[in-house]
Design a protein around this nucleic acid. Structure first.
Lengths: 347, 347
DNA sequence: GTGAAAGCGCTAACAG
DNA sequence: CTGTTAGCGCTTTCAC
């Protein structure tokens, strides 16, 4: 393994010069000629910087602690991880991943990550909710992903819930639906009121009335099916926005029991975030897909920008020669969602 | 941040003694009395070892490089990651995760991981195949997960493909099926011949004939549906083992076109590894679930055992007080699969 | 038993 | 401009 000392010896210069040159801080300090010599020697010897030694000195590791959940049971955590990793990789960071799935002790995992000197944390949940960030994380740069911090102490990144409601409803309107129901969630989720407002705004924008009778919020249980059934019988909606796939299931089931065909007699758009639907029903739902990858990506960007004080470190040597993309204040706090067309909406 | 020097100063001993004690190598070197004093001082000061400094000295980081793929699109990578992390965590390691999904440059990611001094690599694929391990990894401890190394140079861990074929076929036999078809994969996959042998062995064990006419291998394309249709018409099977969910789809579709109901007229068991099925069909398949978590878990165990020469490092201080579980040669090379019962098999 | 001292590979002051 | 020096926090001989 070649060290800076080796390079210094062979090039006949000092470690210090080598360090300066290889970290791109040579201009005005090291003669271009010697700098070039150093660079060539480094390349010839196949020098690879020892990140450990560097970190020990600088107190910066370029390590991001990623704390996730439900990593094994949904593909969503994977999406977030991948997005975060792409961003991290772009800016010269790496993810130290831990999952709190089976873990009794989140704190233990946090302690371990701290031991490795992570520069900051990505604290990620699998659906948008208000969460308590462990106090042990308070001193670190941290970004909450797919959730928000109860104390609003840390920046967070969430899906654009309003837009979800708006887009889905718009799609139903475009499909020709005249009586569009909102099948929501009776639990106190962040997303619920926001999606509802999106739904209502889409209706208003289209000059359609907002009829409270078309709005039901249900839990994930037996009575839910009756409530939705009643909605079918009393209101006869021709379009449904479903808060998630569990809610979509009630709509599909109710439709089936009434001899109605989804995609012909009624149209359904739902948000796919619990994977129940995809595994249970056919044909698949027209879906508003939650932007997990994007949240991971922008979450990591924001974290890095916090860590670096909005100044990207360009001293990643020698693999990265291209300048890093600028990382500035244009990082979004909410992310739009894609609408995935399937067969459940009339053309 | 408390360092060993701080402890030494306060306890009135030397750094060396502190190091010995806190790493559990004090017996016979440090007087029990001073050892106790050191431990108490450390606890009082809330000492946390600096893993970076330790690693710089020892050339051991307790970092495992995890190289995965399809992290964002399937829940399977997540399963492997979680399993690997659980094992890692148990033995005092952490996962440094990178995914090669969108990556043009796997090598770049590898270089980065090396810079952090990972002790070894988990090289993971998302379905069992023969893979080339990047040459740049050759000098490191490495375990291939859910694949095998073409050069058989590295240990690997795979699903027990024979058992998959055997269990699935056994299930169909138990369900009363008399003519069980094998709908396989015409691509050259490792799993194909092994599952086929499992299928054949299960039939033999049950005293049933092996009829080649009941065995078709298809690609994932249009003709496949015709081949399976022909199988239905000419052989009239009453049970189907499907290589994966894509193959299961051909069976479901063919059945539907002939007015046959899965779970009543015919029974179907399949291996769920491409998620196509789950998103496309109802009712869900009776499934042989691939043991992703387990492969991750045992893969990490094997890697750690290679790294440590079958001797687990117990110097994880101070959080881990309980002795680590023994890590020995009982690590499996193949992992059994769970059979998940759904509605597609007659009782 | 215990402590002093020499580094691991790198960065950052400070001389020259 | 360039080299010397002093560590970052820890482990590990090797004297005492």
């Amino acid at each position: 393994m070649t060290t800076m000392q080796d390079i210094a010896d062979i090039a006949g210069v000092s470690k210090a010069s080598v360090s300066l040159v290889l970290n791109g801080r040579d201009v005005g300090h090291v003669k271009p000629q010697t700098a070039e010599l150093i660079r060539q020697t480094a390349a010839k010897l196949g020098y690879r910087p020892n990140q450990l030694a560097r970190s020990l000195r600088t107190h910066r590791t370029h390590l991001l602690g990623f704390i996730g959940e439900q990593v094994a049971t949904t593909p969503y955590a994977g999406g977030i991880i991948l997005g975060a990793q792409d961003a991290a990789s772009t800016y010269g960071y790496v993810l130290l991943t831990v999952s709190t799935d089976g873990m009794a002790d989140e704190e233990q995992e946090i302690t371990v990550l701290k031991r490795y000197g992570v520069d900051g944390f990505l604290y990620s949940k699998m659906f948008n909710r208000i969460t308590d960030v462990p106090r042990s994380l308070a001193d670190y740069p941290l970004v909450v992903v797919d959730a928000i911090d109860r104390d609003k102490q840390f920046p967070s990144i969430e899906p654009d819930e309003f837009q979800i409601g708006y887009d889905a409803t718009k799609r139903l309107i475009d499909a020709g639906c005249r009586r569009i129901a909102y099948v929501g969630c009776a639990e106190p989720l962040i997303a619920q009121p926001r999606r509802l407002r999106g739904y209502q705004t889409a209706l208003s924008d289209a000059g359609m009335p907002i009829d409270d009778a078309l709005h039901v919020d249900v839990l994930n249980n037996e009575p839910a099916l009756q409530v939705v059934g009643k909605l079918f019988d009393e209101q006869r909606p021709d379009g449904f926005f479903c808060f998630n796939d569990a809610r979509a299931w009630y709509v599909y089931e109710s439709a089936a029991r009434r001899g109605l065909t989804v995609g012909r007699d009624i149209s359904v758009v739902g948000v796919d975030n619990h994977r129940v639907f995809a595994e249970t029903l056919a044909p698949p739902l027209t879906t508003v897909e939650l932007p997990h990858y994007e949240m991971g990506y922008w979450g990591a960007c924001r974290l890095i920008s916090v860590i670096e004080g909005h100044d990207v470190d360009t001293s990643i040597w020698p693999e990265t020669t291209a300048p890093l993309p600028p990382l500035d204040a244009t990082i979004p706090a909410t992310v739009h969602c894609k609408l995935i067309e399937k067969k459940s909406v009339r053309k």
